[in-house]
Design a protein around this nucleic acid. Sequence first.
DNA 1: ATAGAAATTAGAATTATTCTTGCTAGATCG
DNA 2: CGATCTAGCAAGAATAATTCTAATTTCTAT
Lengths: 144, 144
Amino acid sequence: MVTRSSDHGLDASPEMPAEISGLRMTRQRWEVYRLLMDQRDHPTANDVFMRIKDRLPNISLATVYNCLEALVQHGVIRQVNFDRESSRFCPNLAEHGHFHDKLSGAIHDVVFKPGVNLADILDLPPGTLITDIEITLRGELPVS
Amino acid sequence: MVTRSSDHGLDASPEMPAEISGLRMTRQRWEVYRLLMDQRDHPTANDVFMRIKDRLPNISLATVYNCLEALVQHGVIRQVNFDRESSRFCPNLAEHGHFHDKLSGAIHDVVFKPGVNLADILDLPPGTLITDIEITLRGELPVS
DNA sequence: ATAGAAATTAGAATTATTCTTGCTAGATCG
DNA sequence: CGATCTAGCAAGAATAATTCTAATTTCTAT
């Protein structure tokens, strides 16, 4: 007898855990999470909605928003904003910024050179508590 | 005879220049610009709209948006975004980031320590052209 | 002065996101 | 095992910031 990951008839290769970082997993949350892990091109909520229809044809856009919000709230993914465009979502939890290439439209993760600590190079009053940093760059990557 | 800055009967202390950075000045653009220079607390378009009514009781919100856009486009002011909140506007043209103090709600300009060049400490492919950098911090300033 | 161009106004339209309501499904308890 | 209880989901309405449209006004240059 073949083991089957769920009763839905759809095969969800990696088994769905009961929870991630304290967030109870549901079929919808799990598929949203898996999509972000598999397609790391910083999709918008609507991108996720359209792409996920293969696996969850009945999901609603509101649920995609709810899932994304829950995942962000529990620190499982990050929400990334460029100007006032639609929010984008990113499963890379390491400290990093984002580079928006004007030529291709693609968004790339950017990290600091080793040993660099942003808080050290900013001129802030002593005792300032930094809870969150966001770095956004725009420009053109070399054509290569 | 007393010199008078305009025919409107309202006194616009510093004389309005014909243009700034190639942007033709109008009464509305000038007042928006002056307000931002005088009140550097990063107001939103709506904040500007409400505050400017003293001087221009008939201005419309759309015009405030138009003026702000024109000023941004000509590099006279900067547009600052925090997450998906309303855009804020800032007349500080020097390279700087923004610190959002969760305690007071205030937004403060942040500069690098002398001699620091952000492009040098980021791990980018050689030949990358950076046209724009945005740095946003959230946290708490020391209480006193 | 006058024609043409650019700005302004008021309000409608748009768009991403959030909210509301009723329903569904999984968890809990007896 | 079944009843109940709760969290999550779906669908669509509502919201809020911003942009667009059309008509009017103000500049600019002739």
